[in-house]
Design a binder for these strands. Structure first.
Length: 466
RNA sequence: GGCGACAUGGCCAAGUGGCUUAAGGCGAAGGUCUGCAAAACCUUUAUUCGUCGGUUCGAAUCCGACUGUCGCCUCCA
């Protein structure tokens, strides 16, 4: 299995430190607002990567941090007259709700900075001891000049950075590129007691401390959005490796941006969409398919048109899903030849190549066409075929990609008005048998008005809800 | 200014040296099935991969130049 590593800019064979265990850390949101659809892409794709590793029988420990101390949080809490804790509690709950709506598997741990002050302090202490950090009157800075590998992830070199620096002048810093690991407390800001006095941690240090705490000093995968490469992940490496003297992360993975009108989403441009807004309008499967259909490292130019075309795609999957559900219940019938193994191996070949989900989706759609074709061309196939087809669908499209959910198809079928609908279908079948087309069409139309779409097939009439 | 990514059909997108005279999704046109629909299936929809040169027996795929788009260098997924 190949994974593209931002650190080496190459696809590398994936070999976990402690196979079959895999440690994976994903930079989660700052919980001061609803997360946007671009965050959603990152979260969903990291979910898919995790699920595929599990499909390959790796035992994954998946950690996603929630940043609950930082400038944005303090600012917003002040605006809304809330304590920072009240604010972050609210958005943590919203985050978990939205993650569930995206049908993501919950992380094993969602660590928060405020709950790891001891660990953070310990890392900073080590940095001081090792000579990588210096204290100026309660502000502790990381001295990037001391760390030889600085810039190895982002491909930047310190001289270039200094030349083009747009960084505010801060006389306390020895080098303008040095960054805070501990910030001295200011009036009206939350703060914690530490050996450097009251203060709060810098942004980058929390990920170093929490990654080490929950996954160990060297982990397999660390992932996040493209924009985190510099400075966030660069600084995490500098801190962690300076503190432990060990390699921090084996494989760095970064997700492409989701743009609106080819531009980065931002509040100031007014092209900002929260994930929950979009999820109110479209099913999670449609969004997941949209993300799946392009490679995780490429940018996506998000648009309504794009989601709608993905949604049509998921309807195609759902249609087959319903047919499979019905087919399984069949009794008798003939055996039919079908090369399921071919599709399994094409699917994993695609995913093994740096999670080529677009290719994997193509395999799924090829499978859909061939299954539909087999059903169309053969009379009376036995349930074994349908069962195997559903198995394939479940283990790939559902469990790994999450672009169809069989339980949802069933819920729609067995809602409380289903008995009445089945009666109507029965009436229509009788009318059809009597060639009373007018009555048959009336029934179909009245159901359609209620959002119930009928589909006639060899197996009888099925329905779905719009 | 420094660093980097990308440019494939009407839209989206995979492919990165011969298996591809280019997957898959959406859309469009025609057809099969059906009482009619829907669903499904079949056929058609890029001799061509931003432009121009080069390397090679062979290039969308490698190299160079150019054009265009975007990102990072400041909080940011």
């Amino acid at each position: 299995m190949l994974v593209y590593n931002t650190l080496t800019k190459k696809k590398e064979e994936f070999t976990p430190i402690n196979s079959p265990n895999v440690s994976m850390y994903v930079c989660g949101p700052t919980i001061y607002d609803y997360f946007h659809i671009g965050n959603g892409r990152t979260f969903v794709m990291s979910d898919i990567i995790r699920r595929y590793l599990e499909y390959k029988n790796y035992k994954v420990t998946f950690v996603m941090n929630l940043t609950d101390v930082d400038d944005k949080i303090i600012k917003k809490a002040n605006e809304e007259n809330l304590s920072t804790a009240e604010l972050t509690e609210r958005y943590e709950a919203a985050f978990k709700k939205d993650i569930a709506r995206f049908k993501m598997k919950p992380a094993d741990v969602y660590p928060k900075a405020t709950e790891h002050m001891k660990e953070i302090e310990e890392v900073i202490e080590k940095l001081e001891q090792n000579g990588f950090a210096y204290n100026v009157d309660g502000n502790v800075f990381y001295n990037i000049g001391k760390f030889k590998g600085y810039g190895k992830l982002s491909g930047k070199n310190i001289d270039d950075l200094e030349a083009g620096a747009r960084i505010e002048i801060n006389n306390e810093k020895q080098n303008p590129l040095d960054f805070s690991v501990w910030k001295k407390s200011k009036e009206g800001e939350p703060s914690w007691k530490s050996q450097w006095g009251q203060g709060r941690p810098g942004w980058h240090i929390e990920c170093s401390a929490m990654s080490m705490k929950h996954l160990g000093e060297t982990i397999d995968i660390h992932a996040g959005g493209n924009d985190l490469i510099f400075p966030h992940h660069e600084n995490e490496i500098a801190q962690s490796e300076a503190a432990t003297g060990k390699e921090f992360v084996r494989y760095w993975m970064h997700f492409g941006f989701l743009n609106i009108d080819k531009q980065k989403m931002s509040k100031s441009l007014g092209n900002f969409f929260t994930a929950r807004d979009i999820l109110d309008q479209y099913p999670a499967e449609a969004l997941r398919l949209l993300f799946v259909q392009s490679h995780y490292r490429s940018p996506i130019n998000f648009s309504r048109e794009l989601i709608e075309s993905a949604q049509k795609g998921t309807e195609k999957l759902d249609n087959l899903g319903r047919v499979l559900n019905d087919g399984i219940k069949k009794v008798g019938g003939i055996k039919v030849e079908f090369d399921f193994n071919k599709f399994y191996s094409l699917f994993s070949a695609a995913m093994d190549d740096d999670f080529n989900t677009s290719q994997a989706a193509a395999v799924i759609f090829d499978f859909v066409r061939e299954v539909n074709k087999t059903i169309a061309e053969n009379e009376d196939i036995n349930s074994d075929f349908f069962r195997k087809a559903k198995e394939f669908f479940q283990s790939t499209a559902e469990t790994v990609l999450g672009i169809i959910h069989f339980t949802d198809l069933e819920v729609k079928e067995s809602s409380n008005d289903s008995e009445w609908i089945l009666e109507q279908i029965e009436l229509r079948s009788k009318a059809k048998a009597e060639k009373n087309w007018q009555l048959a069409d009336e029934i179909r139309n009245s159901l359609a008005e209620k959002g119930v779409i009928l589909e006639d097939s060899k197996l009888g009439t099925t329905y779905k809800k719009k």
